[in-house]
C-alpha cells in the first residue's frame, strides 16, 4: 500500500477544490454580517505583513525612526481591527446559531482561534520594549505565576516573549484560521432557522 497514493486519495476526497473555493453560495447569504470573517482575515494579513517588516528592522527602528514608528502604528491599529472584526464575527456566528447541523467543530476552531489570539496579542504587548510592556509584564507575571504557567512562560523574559510573538503564536493562529476556514468551506454556511408558529415554513429543513 503506497502511503503517497493513500494520502492523495484522502485529500482529493476530503478536500475537493470546488468545495474549498466555491463560486456560488446559498441565496440566503445575503447580508453584510457575512463579511466580518473575511475582514478578520484581511486584518491578519496586515498584521503579518507589518509584523514581518517590524521584525526585519528591529526594536530600535520601531522606537527611533519615524518610518519605524509608523509601521508600529500600522501594526497596532491592525491588531485593533483584527480583534474588532473577530469579535463582531463571533457575535454574528452566535446569533445565527452557526454551530447547528454538524458545525460544532467549526465553532470550536473559531473560539480557539480567538483565545489563542488573545495570548498572541499579550506576547506582543510585552515585546514592545516601552513602559506599556514593563507594566503589562510585571502585572501579568502574577497571574501567570498564580496558576503555575509562569514557571515556563516567563513574561519578564523578552527573548522568550519575542520568540513566541514573532514566530510560534502567528504560526499557531494561522494554522487555526486555516482549519476554521477549511471547515467553513467543507460544511458550508448554516441554513437559516425555521420560523416558529403554526404557519411554519419549512424552508430550512435538513434533508
Amino acid at each position: 500500500m503506497s502511503w503517497t497514493s493513500s494520502l492523495q486519495r484522502k485529500l482529493s476526497e476530503g478536500l475537493p477544490y470546488d468545495q474549498l473555493l466555491p463560486d456560488e453560495q446559498p441565496a440566503y447569504v445575503h447580508s453584510y454580517v457575512y463579511l466580518f470573517g473575511v475582514a478578520t482575515i484581511g486584518s491578519f494579513v496586515l498584521l503579518v505583513v507589518t509584523g514581518v517588516i517590524l521584525a526585519a528592522f528591529g526594536p530600535q527602528w520601531w522606537h527611533g525612526a519615524a518610518v519605524g514608528h509608523f509601521f508600529n502604528s500600522l501594526h497596532f491599529w491592525a491588531a485593533q481591527a483584527f480583534f474588532f472584526f473577530m469579535v463582531v464575527h463571533l457575535w454574528t456566528a452566535f446569533f445565527q446559531g452557526a454551530w447547528r447541523d454538524g458545525r460544532g467543530l467549526t465553532w470550536v476552531s473559531g473560539v480557539v482561534t480567538f483565545l489563542v489570539s488573545i495570548v498572541t496579542a499579550f506576547t506582543g504587548y510585552v515585546s514592545q520594549q516601552n513602559f506599556d510592556s514593563q507594566w503589562i509584564a510585571t502585572q501579568g507575571k502574577d497571574a501567570m505565576n498564580s496558576v503555575g504557567v509562569g514557571a515556563f512562560f516567563n513574561v519578564l523574559n523578552f527573548g522568550q516573549m519575542y520568540g513566541f510573538h514573532v514566530f510560534i503564536m502567528p504560526v499557531v493562529v494561522a494554522g487555526l484560521m486555516g482549519v476554521h476556514l477549511t471547515l467553513v468551506r467543507l460544511r458550508g454556511v448554516v441554513r437559516p432557522y425555521d420560523l416558529p408558529g403554526p404557519s411554519k415554513r419549512r424552508v430550512s429543513e435538513v434533508a
Partner: peptide, 14 residues
C-alpha cells in the same frame, strides 16, 4: 463602534 457596525451590517439593505 463594534455595536454600531454590527447593527448597521444587519440593518443596511444588502
Amino acid at each position: 463602534l463594534m455595536i454600531l457596525v454590527f447593527a448597521a451590517a444587519i440593518l443596511v439593505p444588502y
